[in-house]
Simulated scan of single mutants.
Amino acid sequence: MLKLKKIYYLSMFCLLLWIIVIFSFSAQPVTESVGLSRKVGQKVSELFVPGFKELPQGEQEEFVQKIDFGIRKTAHFLEYMVLGIWWGFLLMPARRSVRFKIWTAVSFSAQPVTESVGLSRKVGQKVSELFVPGFKELPQGEQEEFVQKIDFGIRKTAHFLEYMVLGIWWGFLLMPARRSVRFKIWTAVWASAACAAVDEIHQLFVDGRTGRWQDVCIDTAGAAVGILALFAIIQLIHRRKVKTCQKHLQS
């Protein structure tokens, strides 16, 4: 019993410490963040790319710039992988099923990451190429201008979809609770809204970023759509099962 308590408190401490680490990285100004990822890319290239050190300085910088996107996203992935592990340790002593523990850990670790301008522009570029007729034939300048025009919509749609997924995870988390469906829905919506508010408040302290109440509304709306869709699907499945059972009983 004492051993389980030690694991629990140690996991809680490590979890809080790691959340602080993640927020400290997220709170870096854009220039510092880019500089750090470039340094990591430089070291990775020196260690794993044969002949990298023999390349001229300009070619080294060009190569590091090419792999920078992958380095940054791998760092995000690893940060949240570690966060998920700590959530798993924290939930280990809970007297619930393994499935419940996994869903709970995932739902808390799925806090959305704010999309950078560069990423949203790349998404806008791909969307335009797929759905805008004749986009690929436009001059480079006109393509960039068009992508810049739709950038706002792309970013807000990303917010909406991210929190829709978060809302679904909250719904799964609250599923086993012995409370009314209305209580579960409202709890999931308010929990998602709290995550959105914290995310926007955090952005107020980051250079080059702003926190907006409009974004909180968009995020909460996305979460609400995901939550309502989840519970609507569950209700439909439940009703079908009831009808099937009734048919079997009648026959």
Rank of each mutant, 00 (worst) to 15 (best):
M1Y: 05
L4N: 13
K5C: 04
L10D: 03
M12T: 14
F13T: 14
L17S: 15
I20M: 13
F25T: 12
P29T: 02
V30C: 00
V30K: 12
E32W: 11
S33K: 13
V34L: 13
G35S: 15
R38M: 14
K39W: 02
G41K: 01
Q42A: 06
Q42M: 12
V44R: 00
V49Q: 07
P50Y: 04
E54K: 13
L55A: 02
P56Y: 03
Q65R: 09
I67W: 13
I71V: 15
I71L: 10
K73D: 03
A75W: 05
F77Q: 09
M81Q: 05
I85Q: 02
G88I: 06
L90N: 01
L91Q: 06
P93V: 04
T104P: 00
A105K: 07
S107E: 06
S107R: 05
V113S: 02
S116I: 06
V117R: 12
G118A: 05
L119H: 10
R121D: 03
G124L: 10
L130W: 14
E137I: 02
L138P: 05
Q140V: 14
Q143N: 04
E144H: 06
I150H: 08
F152N: 07
F152S: 09
G153N: 10
K156T: 12
L161E: 03
Y163H: 04
M164F: 08
V165C: 11
V165S: 12
L166W: 07
F172T: 10
P176G: 07
A177F: 07
I185E: 05
I185G: 03
A191W: 05
A193V: 02
C195H: 06
A196D: 08
E200I: 05
I201H: 00
H202T: 01
Q203L: 15
D207C: 00
R209Y: 03
R209K: 09
Q214T: 15
I218Q: 04
D219H: 04
G226D: 04
G226E: 04
L230E: 05
I233P: 01
I234A: 12
L236R: 12
I237K: 07
V242G: 00
K243N: 07
K247T: 00
